[in-house]
Amino acid sequence: MTTPVLQAKGLTKRYGRVVAIDGSDLELYPGEILAVIGDNGAGKSSLIKALSGALIPDSGEIFLDGKQVHFRTPMDARSAGIETVYQTLAVAPGLDIADNLFLGREERKPGVLGSVFRMLDRGHMRAEAKRHMSELGVATLQNIGQAVESLSGGQRQAVAVARSAAFGSKVVILDEPTAALGVKEGNRVLQLIRDVRDRGLPVILISHNMPHVFEVADRIHIQRLGRRATVITPKSHSMSEAVAIMTGAAEPHQRLPPDTAASKDVDGGDNHNGCRLRLTLPGLTLYPGGDCRRSSSVRAWVTRAVSAPPDRAISWARSPAASIRWRAWRRLCRCLRRALRSFRRPLTALRSSGSSPSGPSSCRIQSRSCRAAFRIT
């Protein structure tokens, strides 16, 4: 069996009573793109920070090439060959492209000029920066010495990816690389990610963009509530199934059936009237349209598809108690809206006539309006 390049076992991180990472695992194999997806607050960024040394986990183990490592700072991870591009890019806008690529790794001139006078070898750094950018296919840069603040969003992202690919000898981690980019620039960054993978470097990609994830990822790690829910592939699962697992609407082992296959009832019986189950939640059952009938097996209102057209929207129904509460809440809101409208009309009439609303006639008008507003028919 292939040994993972980077592996995490039982990582845990707590901030008081808040659990950011709850025993999460991760495996990254050579030459693959592993996408990490999850809802907000699922612990994706905390997991990546723990792998890149920006965060020290409370418990758990991290293995690099089969050997256990302990990262105390991001420099420890960088020296081990793990490069990370954070969501904020971490580029210096006032510096040029070459200075950003060698940021923290500046090369000095040989001899006395570098050791004593600490002069930088800018000519060599610019030549190496140009070579790295050309290897990744970034040919839109006019001058390697231009400031990063003059570049577009996609070009800045390309500089950050090129820096990680130039010095990352083991793993490249990308946190939301296409979050603030347009369609054209996002596709360019995706191509850069493929080029990094083709060079033999495994990539961890964190993204909320499902089309981008299913386009470039080899495997998809789904993070939920601080731990790994499951690992899927774009060939085995669809986008809707991945979102259902990510949000907790479906179990990791549960597969949503296709529209052409009839499924079974909630309690495991045969299908009834050709209804096709689309999604099942606690106290809520969704079918692709139809009339509402009582299901004694689960004691909930369910919707069955009885000769429903295929383009009909999914219909749903709550449990009886929830439906009663919902109707009572809507009736209360309607009464409040009527009261506000009834108060507004006499006040508007009094303001337009120029009289004061403090007389007894106005009080009688308002009291009649209140009684009329709260009368339930």
Rank of each mutant, 00 (worst) to 15 (best):
M1R: 13
T2Q: 15
P4N: 02
V5H: 06
Q7W: 04
K9V: 11
L11T: 00
Y15K: 10
R17F: 11
R17L: 14
V19G: 02
A20L: 00
I21T: 14
I21N: 15
P30A: 13
G31W: 05
E32Q: 07
A35W: 02
I37E: 01
G41A: 02
A42S: 03
K49N: 12
A50H: 03
A50S: 11
I56F: 07
P57A: 05
L64T: 01
K67Q: 10
V69Q: 08
H70Q: 15
F71K: 01
T73W: 03
T73N: 10
A77P: 03
A77T: 02
R78T: 14
I82V: 07
E83S: 05
V85M: 03
Q87M: 09
A90N: 10
L101Y: 04
L101H: 04
F102T: 03
E106A: 10
E106D: 04
E107K: 15
R108E: 14
G111C: 05
V112G: 09
L113S: 12
G114K: 07
S115M: 12
R122T: 11
H132T: 12
G137L: 04
L141V: 08
A147D: 12
V148P: 00
S150M: 13
L151F: 03
S152G: 09
Q155C: 02
Q157I: 05
A158I: 00
A160L: 05
S164D: 06
A165C: 09
G168S: 01
S169P: 03
I173P: 00
L174H: 05
D175I: 00
E176Y: 00
K184M: 04
L190I: 07
I193A: 03
R194D: 11
R197D: 06
R197Q: 13
F214P: 02
E215T: 08
A217Q: 06
D218A: 03
H221P: 08
I222Y: 00
I222L: 09
Q223L: 11
Q223G: 04
P234F: 01
V243I: 12
A244S: 12
A244R: 10
A250N: 11
H253V: 09
H253S: 15
L256A: 13
P258I: 02
T260G: 11
T260L: 11
D267S: 13
G268I: 09
D270Q: 12
H272K: 14
L279T: 08
L281R: 07
L284T: 12
Y287T: 15
Y287Q: 14
P288V: 07
D291M: 14
D291A: 13
R293G: 13
T303A: 11
S307Y: 12
A308Q: 12
P310M: 07
R318K: 13
W326Y: 15
R327G: 12
R330C: 08
R330K: 11
L332M: 15
R345D: 13
G354M: 03
P357H: 08
P360T: 14
S361C: 12
C363W: 13
C363R: 14
R368H: 09
S369E: 10
